[in-house]
Structure formats: structure tokens, C-alpha cells
């Protein structure tokens, strides 16, 4: 296809379309950046698309004062949740693919059912359970919930990858006197690094962007992650659009950084992961 339609004309049309679409896609972000750089007086007086009269960086420091705690909370939740979650998912995927496990297929099907259960179907009992054990508004409670919800997807991705590793490796490791745990940590895990890197990125992203669970299980303002925190921030400054825009941008930055550095994994990961 790349070769067959390579007339200059169609290439130019293609370019023009892409550029127009890219501009349309960037407008919302540019609009937010412009708003965040203005003073409120400027915003009231001049049309929204005008450049700021004077660039007001103060919006960012003011928003950062409020938002930094939410960003810190999200970072903390992600940094703890993602490695623990992936470790237990990898252990399970290992048992399901490389241990001659009689129940492997049945158990895998059982885990897959979890992909069909929307969060909503678990909220009330989970809430009762957390309250019962005094885990509401605690990080252990949050970790448990987040880790549990990550299990089906993580196992699906890792099982798919571990299955493709040749069996001969296990046999030579066995002959060299490796136990199952040794084989897992020293041989299979290093080989699975590309899949794990992808999963780390996807898992980080979904933990960072999670909103519903945070909304239900975290009621203490000082513990909110960035999604729920941003909504609280909006509630407190509902008409202060310059400050709000600065807050939105601040919460975009961590994602943008991760995105730019690990983009390869995002794209490859999404395409690969969904296919299983």
C-alpha cells in the first residue's frame, strides 16, 4: 500500500489532512495553556483566543500549592501498587504456563471472567468489607482494591508472553539445579522483561488515571489521588478558569513525561495487550 499510492498528489493531500487534523487535536490543549497563562482580568477583558497581555506564571505556583499533595499521593499509590501487582500476576502467569499445572486452563478462564465485571458490581460489598476491617481511608485498603482489579488483565498479558518462551529453557534450568523460584526469578522474569515493561507502563497509567474507586474508597482530602483531587480542586475554584487550567496542566505533565519517554511501549503494548 505504501508503494502503490505514492503519487505526489495523494501524498500532499495526505499531509494536508494530517496537519489539519493535528491542529484540531491540539486546539483543546493550546486553549488550556493560553488560559493558564492569563490573569483573570485579562480573561474577562479580552477574547479567549488572544495571547496573554502579561504572562502570569503565578497561576501555576498557586495551583501547585493545592495540587502537589494529590500528585504525591498518586505517585505513592502507583509506585507501590504497580510492582506488587505485577509480581503476583507474574507468579500466577508462571504457574499457569510453565509448571505442568493440571488446573491451568480452568483457572485462567476463571481469572478472565474478572475482565467482564465492572467496578460498579463490587463497590458496596468492598465498602462494607473495608469498613469492617477499619481499612477505609487507609493505603493498605487502597492497595488491596487496586491490586485485585489489576489481576485479570495482568495475568492475561503475562500468560500470553510466558507461553511463547521455549520449554527447553526450563529443562536446562532444571538440569542446572534451579528450583521453581530460582527459575522464575533468574530465567523467566529476565526474558519476560519486554512484556513486563509494557505492563508497568499500562498499569501505571491505569492506576494514575483511576477515578471511580478513588471516589468511593478515599474520602479524606489529604489522601486523594490526582483524578479525584482535581475534581475537588474544581469544586473549590469553579469560576477561576485561569487557576483551574493551570491545575489541569500540572496534572497532565507527569503523564506527558511518561508518555514521551515510553511511547514505544504504549503503542506496542496497547496493540499487543488487547490481542492477548
Amino acid at each position: 500500500m505504501e508503494e502503490t499510492r505514492n503519487s505526489t498528489f495523494s501524498k500532499v493531500v495526505n499531509y494536508i489532512l494530517l496537519i489539519v487534523l493535528a491542529i484540531i487535536f491540539l486546539i483543546p490543549i493550546l486553549f488550556i495553556i493560553m488560559t493558564a497563562l492569563k490573569s483573570n482580568a485579562d480573561l474577562v477583558k479580552n477574547p479567549v483566543y488572544a495571547f496573554p497581555e502579561i504572562v502570569k506564571w503565578g497561576n501555576f505556583s498557586e495551583a501547585w500549592d493545592k495540587m502537589s499533595i494529590y500528585i504525591r499521593n498518586s505517585l505513592f499509590i502507583s509506585v507501590v501498587k504497580v510492582p506488587i501487582g505485577i509480581l503476583i500476576e507474574a507468579l500466577a502467569a508462571y504457574a499457569l504456563t510453565r509448571m505442568n499445572f493440571k488446573w491451568a486452563n480452568a483457572l485462567f478462564a476463571f481469572f478472565l471472567i474478572g475482565m467482564m465485571i465492572p467496578f460498579q458490581a463490587t463497590l458496596v460489598p468492598l465498602n462494607m468489607m473495608l469498613n469492617h476491617f477499619g481499612l477505609e481511608n487507609t493505603y493498605p485498603g487502597i492497595f488491596m482494591v487496586y491490586i485485585g482489579f489489576g489481576v485479570p488483565f495482568g495475568i492475561m498479558v503475562l500468560r500470553g508472553f510466558l507461553r511463547s518462551i521455549p520449554k527447553e529453557l526450563d529443562e536446562s534450568a532444571f538440569i542446572d539445579g534451579c528450583g521453581e523460584l530460582g527459575k522464575f526469578f533468574r530465567i523467566i522474569l529476565p526474558i519476560a522483561m519486554p512484556a513486563i515493561a509494557t505492563l508497568i507502563i499500562l498499569d501505571f497509567l491505569s492506576t494514575w488515571n483511576e477515578f471511580l474507586l478513588a471516589q468511593i474508597f478515599i474520602t479524606k482530602n489529604s489522601m486523594l489521588p490526582v483524578t479525584a483531587g482535581l475534581l475537588t480542586f474544581q469544586g473549590q475554584h469553579s469560576n477561576d478558569y485561569t487557576l483551574l487550567s493551570a491545575g489541569v496542566l500540572i496534572s497532565i505533565v507527569p503523564i506527558l513525561v511518561v508518555y514521551l519517554f515510553f511511547q514505544r511501549y504504549f503503542v506496542a503494548g496497547m496493540a499487543g495487550a488487547v490481542k492477548g
Binding site: I88, E89, L91, A92, Y94, A95, L96, M99, F101, L107, F111, G114, I117, A121, T122, L123, V124, P125, L126, M129, M144, V145, I147, G148, F149, V151, P152, I155, E180, F184
Partner: peptide, 17 residues
């Protein structure tokens, strides 16, 4: 090997739903 994932899955998704 399956136990940690299975327990988390049962507690957080299966039993509550």
C-alpha cells in the same frame, strides 16, 4: 505461585460481585 493473585482476585472481584 497462584495463591497471592487468586486471593486478591477472590477478595476484591469475585466475592464482592
Amino acid at each position: 505461585f497462584v495463591l497471592p493473585a487468586l486471593v486478591a482476585y477472590l477478595i476484591v472481584i469475585v466475592a464482592p460481585s
